[in-house]
């Protein structure tokens, strides 16, 4: 974001300068990352949330999908966030749901990133008809309004966790493929890549060992924004009852009850916590992505995505 990294070279402390000179790439990245205060706080927040997602269902006396109390019970000592409309403990369901939402977003981001990397590499490296073919496919997929395509697929393949992961991957790979392609096209003309070619290295070696590592920074930065987007999409889909299906909780389908005006009006504890949780997680992921951008690619800190 607006972190100033220009003063790296102005360190007056010779020891510090020496230690900076000696550090590995990973250490440099970590040091720059830490300087983005909001990003660093977000990282810690995310680690704590992941720990809670693992711990809460283990330590909670309640089964997240089991009926454990009266229905629509307001927050109390026994149920700190109350119970839902059939009597399940909201706090346990909130963390179980956050786990499912994060899992959906992470797996889908991973799949779309891998597919995008492979197709983007092929497209940018081989060019000609391979490139034309793959790029036209990305054009076609990206022409459909994103959420519309997701909803249509969800309607055809029946909503459910795994289908949602695959559907979100399908709509997200084209942007990643284009990003990788444009980076590959910039790198493939560089001397060391040409050198590998003269040395008779295989195409696969040149693509994955020479080119890919040099294109990883923008890929990682873009993946972080895809992660934030898929969190929001899973939430919207599940809210519309086209995503993760109950009794399995997700942050989105916990909010599904708020479609009813009486729930919205009278039982705010059922829908405010999952909504706020989604915002906190997505804000955290966005800040981490921003810090990552500063850390991996200081020149582009003023650039969008």
């Amino acid at each position: 974001m607006v972190e100033n990294t220009k003063n790296i070279n102005h360190s007056k402390d010779a020891n510090l300068a020496q230690s900076i000179a000696d550090e590995t790439y990973a250490q440099t990245v970590y040091r720059r990352f830490k300087r983005h205060r909001l990003g660093f706080i977000s990282l810690i927040f995310l680690i704590v949330v992941v720990a809670l997602i693992i711990l809460v269902p283990l330590l909670s006396p309640y089964d997240p999908n089991g009926i454990v109390g009266n229905y629509k019970e307001p927050p109390s000592a026994a149920h700190p966030l109350g119970t839902d409309k059939v009597g399940r403990d909201m706090l346990t369901r909130l963390f179980a749901g956050a786990g499912v939402s994060l899992f959906v977003a992470l797996s889908s981001t991973l799949i779309s990133t891998l597919v995008g990397i492979v197709l983007g590499l092929l497209s940018g490296y081989f060019g000609s008809w391979v490139d034309i073919f793959i790029m036209r496919i990305t054009d076609v997929v990206m022409s459909f309004p994103y959420l519309l395509l997701v909803l249509v697929f969800a309607a055809i393949f029946d909503p459910g966790m795994w289908n949602i992961i695959l559907i979100l991957s399908f709509v997200n790979w084209p942007a990643m493929a284009r990003l990788v392609r444009s980076n590959v096209m910039a790198i493939r003309k560089v001397n060391f890549v040409q050198g590998s070619r003269v040395a008779g290295m295989t195409h696969a070696y040149i693509m994955f060992k020479d080119i890919l590592p040099n294109a990883m920074a923008p890929v990682l930065i873009n993946a972080s924004s895809v992660l934030a987007l898929t969190m929001l999409d899973e939430a919207a889909l599940s809210y519309l009852a086209m995503g993760v299906q109950p009794p399995t909780a997700s942050l989105g389908n916990l909010l599904n009850v708020a479609q009813s005006f009486s729930v919205l009006k009278n039982y705010p504890w059922m829908w405010i916590p999952p909504g706020v949780f989604i915002i906190l997680l997505v804000v955290a992921i966005n800040f981490i992505g921003d810090a990552l951008r500063d850390a991996l690619d200081p020149q582009s800190q003023s650039q969008e995505n």
Partner: peptide
Amino acid sequence: YTIVLLSFIGTSIPSFFLALVLVYLFNM
């Protein structure tokens, strides 16, 4: 800083949740 911070938060709010909060506040 403020504009950038707000724009980050704005993009992180699911629109359906913002809609629910607004209906809750301004209607109910």
